[in-house]
Design a protein around this nucleic acid. Structure first.
Lengths: 112, 112
DNA sequence: AAAATATATGAACATGTATTTATATGTATG
DNA sequence: CATACATATAAATACATGTTCATATATTTT
């Protein structure tokens, strides 16, 4: 079930906006976005992400640290491996909404 | 009414991901995000955005061009002024979902 | 305890980009 | 047509950041 839609009226503090922008910024890199997509549904280990996405282990780890600090993903240790998964369902909602936006028909008065 | 939730399964092409990331990247800057928020509900002129946000006219115009090219906002000329407004409701949904994510309680095993 | 495996971290580099300054384009008005 | 007003654009700069390479930490296994 989708969370209720809260008005954006009372979230105008600079602090909120910085935090919002930070989250969007993190999702605004193709490597990180692909990593997030891998973590969306089920937990996945760092090495699996690296091999599946053909990214270096170091790079994946760097990105995961940023994502974890921003609470986009959370981590869970299982033996030698560490599994990462999206922090909550909202991450998926955000992406789905943006996909919906992309597939929206264009209606601007001026041409490009 | 919220748009239906489409599975993210069949949107794995590199092209889609690049476009997605580009949109998130654009929203990942505080100046641009504040501009977007100003355009969310009703059309607003460039100069009004600039004065209300205390940003230079040039900077606002630069950002609006990027946002318009990416179809985050659309423009409409009214006499000397140009009004900008969010391209569709999905933009607002994306932001609302992210706000919901921020206010979500943390549940990670490890502390920071 | 040593070796092996998985992950994390630090420094360096190269690239990208937000912002400013100056100027140009477009639109209405005297 | 010239002036004023609103917006757009170009070049330059300062800063941020994605990626790589090398190395460290953590956990299991022999």
């Amino acid at each position: 079930m989708k969370p209720q839609r809260r008005p954006l009226s009372n979230m105008g503090t600079e602090e909120d906006i910085s935090q919002l922008a930070e989250l969007f910024r993190l999702m605004g890199d193709t490597s990180r976005l692909r990593i997030i997509l891998k973590c969306l549904h089920t937990p996945i280990s760092v090495s699996d992400i690296a091999t599946q996405l053909e990214l270096s282990q170091s790079l994946v780890s760097h990105h995961l640290r940023l994502l974890r600090t921003a609470r986009v993903v959370r981590s869970e240790r299982r033996g030698k491996q560490v599994f990462y998964v999206a922090a909550d369902e909202h991450i998926q909602c955000v992406i789905e909404d943006m996909v919906a936006h992309i597939s929206e028909p264009d209606q601007n008065e001026e041409d490009d």
